[in-house]
Every structure is written in C-alpha cells, then in structure tokens.
C-alpha cells in the first residue's frame, strides 16, 4: 500500500473509531438514552443484555469493524511515531513487519471472539 493509501485509511479508520466507538460507549454507558439495545432492560452490563447484543449480527459486525479500525489506526499511528524518531531503514522494516503481525494476530483473535460470542447463550 502506498503512503497516500495508508494515510487515507488511517484517517478513515479514525473517523470509524470516532463514530462506532462513540456508539459503543453510548450503548454501554448511557442506559437511559440507549436502553433500546438492552433486550432484558436494566443495566447495559447485565449478562442477559450483553449476551443479547452479542447474539445480534449487526453488533458482531460493528465490533469487528471497530476492532479493525482501532487496530489499524493505533498501530499505523505508532509506526509513524517510532519511524519519525529517525530509526534505521532496517529497524523501520522490522517494525513494520512486527506491527503488521501483531495487528493480524489481534484482529484474528478479536474477530473470532466477536463471532464466537454469538453462540454463547444463557443456560
């Protein structure tokens, strides 16, 4: 990916984090306003409500998008900060590969968790 593309997706991911992360925060912390996402009523953090949201495909997809956007935005930002400290070309290449590997691994685990959680039901 060239620098323009990386940067464009970095900004787009930031916007996605702002919007989806904002909605996520509202759902979790603003029971009064966003209570419609609590199928069992009461606290957003109640087990029934958490597993109810987890069972929804819309929520699972939004979690995966949020995870991907947050990982890309955070890791690309970290890469830029470190590479601007004036590290060698070789260290720069290693850093890029290490962050890519970390990003792919975290995304895989997180995406798996988001979808696997759909099938955890209250016994």
């Amino acid at each position: 990916m060239n620098k323009t593309a990386s940067w464009f997706w970095f900004i787009a991911a930031g916007v996605a984090v702002f919007i989806i992360g904002g909605l996520h925060m509202a759902v979790i912390h603003l029971d009064g306003i966003a209570g419609i996402f609590n199928p069992a009523g009461g606290s957003s953090l109640a087990w029934e409500n958490v597993s109810g949201r987890n069972g929804s495909l819309v929520f699972a997809v939004s979690y995966v998008i949020l995870l991907g956007a947050a990982l890309y935005h955070g890791l690309y930002g970290l890469y830029n900060i470190v590479s601007e400290l004036g590290i060698s070309e070789k260290a720069n290449g290693l850093l890029k590969k290490a962050l890519l590997a970390a990003g792919v691994a975290l995304f895989t685990v997180g995406a798996y968790a988001a979808f696997a959680a759909r099938f955890i039901t209250v016994s």
Binding site: N2, K3, T4, S6, W7, N80, S83, E84
Partner: peptide, 9 residues
C-alpha cells in the same frame, strides 16, 4: 511528495 518522509509526515 506522496512517498515516505514527505507530505504525510
């Protein structure tokens, strides 16, 4: 200008 170490830095 669109490469590394240019506008996007």
């Amino acid at each position: 200008v669109g490469a590394d170490k240019a506008v996007f830095n």
